[in-house]
Amino acid sequence: MSDNGFKEKAKGAGNKIKGEAKDQWGSATNDSSKKADGKLDKVKGEFQDSVGDSKNKNHKNKD
């Protein structure tokens, strides 16, 4: 059974939120390592979101 990209989009949203929190914490504490971790999580989230979109498009094309 296909998840229609929902799982990837949900993971992506979680990683973007987590990344934003790390980025903000790094800014507040002047921790460049934490900021970098946050930016990486946000990029990972964007990628997962794109994968979810792609799965959704592929699923729609099969219908």
Rank of each mutant, 00 (worst) to 15 (best):
K57V: 09
K42T: 03
K7S: 11
A21F: 05
N15S: 06
K55P: 00
M1Y: 03
Q24M: 08
N58G: 04
D49F: 10
V43D: 15
D49I: 00
I17W: 02
K42R: 14
V51E: 11
S33C: 00
N58A: 15
S54D: 07
M1I: 05
K7Y: 10
D37N: 08
N56M: 10
M1P: 13
K18T: 06
N30T: 05
K34L: 03
K22S: 01
D3Q: 14
A21I: 06
K42S: 05
G26W: 01
K7I: 15
K62V: 03
K11N: 11
N30D: 09
L40F: 11
G12P: 05
K39Y: 08
G26H: 02
K62T: 07
N15E: 13
Q24C: 08
K9R: 14
N56K: 13
E46Y: 04
S33A: 11
S50H: 03
V43K: 15
K35Y: 01
A13E: 11
F47H: 09
N61H: 02
D3T: 12
K44L: 12
S32K: 09
Q24T: 10
K39R: 12
K44R: 12
K9H: 05
G52E: 03
Q48A: 13
K42A: 01
D41E: 14
G52D: 05
S27L: 13
K34I: 08
K55T: 01
K22G: 02
A10P: 01
G14E: 14
N4K: 09
K11G: 01
W25G: 04
K60Y: 01
K57Y: 07
D3P: 01
A10W: 04
N58I: 07
D3V: 07
K35W: 02
G52K: 02
D41I: 02
A36N: 07
A28V: 02
